[in-house]
Design a protein around this nucleic acid. Structure first.
Length: 849
RNA sequence: GCCGGUGUGGCGGAAUUGGUAGACGCGCUCGAUUCAAAAUCGAGUUUCUUAGGAAGUAUGGGUUCGAUUCCCAUCGCCGGUACCA
């Protein structure tokens, strides 16, 4: 039994071309200062989200986006652009470390092995990356600049007046005290309840919690001192500056939602001599506030509680503390307890009771609310349960599906103010304005914009991450930064780097390392994985620079003013993590004058998820995972690339189908057989079908294909471009001979999609110049002009005839011919023709009744 | 609940300034080739049908000579988010 014959010898020529490209550095991209750099060329920076090199190797999801960018990059290159298309490794972080622990090896060892495997897999797919620009977030040369950027954050504050970051040295110059400066740094230390994962032995950011819970890790709230980044100061800019970006609406919406902007007002109530401020989006309902609620964790709870209520309150607070946020969210049943204290409603001096209830969260707003049960569902439920007064202060117009009976439920919409003193008769919008004006005049409150976004918890208690380049004074407890000259600060070698459960992290056991001097010791926390990925797109532009994280020349050449990277492609699972974090860092770098743009990614696109053959998400437990290596082994890299592009629209989720891979594999074999055929011994040789000569029909379809492929690439609808090439190939297959120039043109169109096959045939035909280095074919529109065209004839909108007519036929003649058609007249007899619509070049529609 | 996306043959999907619905591929059927098979090549493949047609792009309306495409309402599915005041 001989091995099953391959439809075309991809197993021979794919590795051959891969080594050729690697040895000749075909895809090297010179930048400013590099040999061979041509500043007159337009640039195009196209970027893939770099992978973290997991032990599982490449997933079929990776090549989806990577192939799309590779096609785009090759296309732009052939169109004269200097294309930057780099690749690297996001090799720090929890997943890498978890894998190392699982396999009982040092993370550096596993990372190196995994990286090697990933690089091999990517190279075997024929991607045109400039491997000279490869970066790795764990590389000391890279860590140095990640830490340097962190110090930029540490040494900056957010200036409210200018809405931008500025160096804290400005505050020092103004004579601010150290403590005051520490209060405003963009990187600051903070003690607060955080998401602590006992199973991972580290804290997590709000954005990360769900992801790890899904993976089966435990997460609980626990108060800890942690390093935070003041991303909240950028909330407004992160919303505003999202607007002009060329991103999918769904991703923009996800970010907007996460940042969660609400407009409203702050109102200050007097509670037994204390000022308590609440946030409300409906200040117009202030007259309807019949009680106040504090979160159980509110700092004033103990102070205002009366002696009679003390015991009940303490019991309740204790019960809440033991409940996780999860339980608190799930249990919609209202619970609470009165403090015995009263608040004075500033607008009418009414005394309203102050309650404590866990439906008010300490983490949002001020942790206190004014309750308006007449017009808020939650307050309504609470008031009903505890028999608190419910006041109507807005009449809500009846709109579909909305409850308007105040006996049954809160009426939550907008309407007209009633029982509200000087607001009576005003529409909600105007009432809001008037009450805010009143609050400001009487110094009882002000307009307020509230965000859901919290500051970014930036420290982790892990080994495999960038150590913070910070020092603590052993006596005073004051922190400071290590000198820049000491960067990179690497984590010490450790035998046992497993999490210890100690919230100071495993580095705390490295006593030699911690002791910086007699007076100073090192910070032992490390940065989260996101640190490295926040700025990697900048480093690719100038990966070997030892003086700067990016040279001004490279920054200026490769970046755009309205978003640094021209085109960014990667998974939407990063919509509120990486994509938000790097926007934040980029803005800080912009504010401090290090980059000229305020956004990192001008255009962004998220490929859809590739599901298993069973339509479910691929997972080991379901056994529906497809390994790209297996596909390459069976069908070749070109087939895998082409299939993933042919599956359907790039942004859609779609199921894998091995039969579909066979389909595109057959197509590629068909292209191969246009040029090659087997001899008697079964060896491939040139078929002789490619010949000098002319063929108008093939010229027409070839140029139509140029047009369709160009459109497909420009609109990222690669599936339609592949369809076009399939049709063109079918025409070549049917023809006796194919003119050489047309076929070479076709190979250029195919080359971004299936670069190995295209290069191989091109070279077999005796062409010496690489397709990658040739220019994109020029479309000859004149070939597409038809002398005769088909016109459809409709009667009352229904197709009744097709006419073949000269392309330049007059409207009158067309109408005459249409009416004269047998089938048309059959449908118009016994009817009166009321109207004839003639669309030249397209159709005739006869209206008759 | 709220926000966003989406709905077309047996399957993946095509068709956008509104103008031939189902391109291309998968699967299936038939034929050629073969001792036979695989591979390859060719033909066919939305449904119903009284064979002339009729219906048809989630559902119901609307605008239009004409709607998968535009508008309104409803339903299903996917993703995000949720006592966020």
């Amino acid at each position: 039994m001989s091995e099953k014959r391959k439809p075309y010898p991809f197993d021979l020529f794919e590795p051959k071309w891969q080594s050729h490209w690697a040895e000749n550095k075909t895809y090297r991209t010179p930048g400013p200062g590099d040999e061979g750099f041509d500043p007159s060329k337009p640039k195009y920076y196209i970027l893939d989200m770099f992978p973290y090199p997991s032990g599982a190797g490449l997933h079929v999801g990776h090549p989806e986006g990577y192939t799309a960018t590779d096609i785009m990059g090759r296309y732009k290159r052939m169109n004269g652009f200097n294309v930057l298309h780099p690749m690297g490794w996001d090799a720090f972080g929890l997943p890498a470390e978890q894998y190392a622990i699982k396999t009982n090896q040092h993370p550096r060892v596993t990372t190196e092995a995994n990286t090697k495997n990933f690089r091999r897999q990517l190279q075997e797919l024929g991607f045109g990356y400039d491997w000279d620009r490869e970066i790795n977030t764990t590389d000391p040369k890279y860590v140095r600049w990640t830490q340097w950027i962190f110090l930029q954050l540490y040494n900056s504050y957010f200036c409210d007046e200018d809405q931008k970051a500025k160096p804290v040295s400005e505050l020092e110059a103004k004579g601010w005290a150290q403590k005051e400066i520490d209060e405003v740094r963009l990187a600051f230390i903070h003690e607060a309840p955080v998401n602590w994962s006992p199973s991972l032995g580290t804290v997590l950011s709000n954005e990360e919690v769900e992801e790890w819970k899904k993976k089966g890790e435990t997460v609980e709230r626990r108060p800890l001192r942690q390093w935070m980044l003041r991303i909240t100061r950028y909330a407004q800019r992160l919303i505003d500056e999202l607007e002009p970006l060329d991103w999918p609406e769904s991703i923009k919406s996800l970010q907007r939602n996460w940042i969660g902007r609400s407009e409203g007002a702050e109102v200050t109530f007097d509670v037994e001599g204390n000022d308590i401020t609440v946030f409300t989006t409906r200040p117009d309902t202030l007259f309807g506030a019949t009680y106040m609620v504090l979160a159980p964790e509110h700092p004033l709870v103990a102070k205002i509680t009366t002696d009679e209520n003390k015991e009940a309150v303490e019991t309740y607070v204790k019960a809440c503390a033991s409940k996780s946020d999860m339980d608190r969210g799930l249990d919609k049943d209202k619970t609470g307890v009165a403090t015995g204290a009263f608040a004075i409603n500033p607008v009418n001096d009414e005394k309203i009771p102050v309650w404590i209830a866990d439906y008010v969260m300490m983490g949002y707003g001020s942790g206190a609310i004014m309750a308006v049960p007449g017009h808020d569902e939650r307050d309504f439920d609470f008031a009903k349960k505890f028999d608190i007064e419910i006041k109507q202060v807005v009449t809500v117009a009846a709109t579909s599906g909305r409850e308007t009976n105040p006996e049954v439920a809160a009426t939550v919409g907008v309407g007209t103010a009633i029982n509200s003193g000087f607001l009576d008769g005003l529409k909600t919008k105007d009432a809001k304005k008037k009450i805010i004006h009143w609050l400001v005049e009487n110094k009882k409150g002000s307009k307020k914009i509230q965000f859901k976004l919290r500051d970014w918890l930036f420290s982790r208690q892990r080994y495999w991450g960038e150590p913070f380049p910070l020092l603590w004074d052993k006596e005073t407890g004051q922190h400071s930064s290590v000198p820049e000259s000491e960067l990179p600060l690497l984590q010490p070698e450790m035998e046992d780097f497993k999490p210890t459960g100690d919230p100071r992290g495993p580095l705390v056991n490295c006593t030699d390392w911690i002791d910086y001097s007699d007076k100073l010791r090192r910070e032992t926390n490390t940065m989260p994985q996101w640190a490295g990925s926040c700025w990697y797109y900048l480093r690719y532009c100038d990966p070997d620079n030892t003086e700067n994280f990016i040279s001004p020349e490279a920054e200026n050449y490769w970046g755009n003013d309205d978003g640094f990277v021209d085109f960014y492609v990667g998974g939407k699972e990063h919509a509120v993590l990486h994509l938000l974090y790097s926007r934040f860092w980029h803005k800080v770098l912009n504010d401090l004058g290090h980059v000229k743009s305020s956004e990192p990614f001008k255009k962004y696109f998220a490929p859809g998820l590739i599901m298993g053959e069973d339509g479910q998400k691929m997972s080991k437990s379901l056994g529906n995972v497809v390994n790209p290596d297996d596909v390459v082994e069976l069908y070749g890299a070109d087939s895998l690339r082409l299939y993933e592009m042919f599956m359907g629209p790039l942004d859609q989720d779609k199921p894998w189908a091995m039969k579909g891979v066979e389909g595109v594999h057959r197509f590629l074999a068909k292209v191969w057989r246009v040029a090659c055929s087997e001899d008697a011994e079964g060896k491939w040789q040139l078929s002789g079908k490619i010949a000098e000569g002319k063929n108008d029909d093939l010229a027409k379809i070839t140029h139509a294909t140029i047009k369709r492929v160009e459109e497909a690439i420009n609109t990222l609808r690669f599936n339609t471009g592949i369809s076009a090439m399939m049709e063109c190939t079918n025409a070549y297959t049917s023809a006796g001979e194919v003119p050489r120039d047309l076929f070479l043109t076709f190979l250029k169109l195919l080359s971004p999609f299936a670069p190995h096959l295209a290069e191989e045939i091109n070279s077999a035909l005796g062409e010496t110049e690489l397709l990658s280095e040739q220019t994109w074919p020029v479309l000859d529109e004149s070939l597409l002009v038809e002398s005769e065209i088909q016109i459809i004839v409709q009667v009352n909108g229904k197709l009744r005839a097709r006419l073949t007519v000269p392309a330049d036929i007059s409207k009158e003649d067309l109408e005459k011919q249409a009416l004269a058609d047998d089938n048309v007249s059959a449908h118009t007899t016994e009817k009166t023709v009321r109207k004839v619509i003639v669309i030249p070049g397209k159709l005739v529609n006869i209206v008759a009744n």
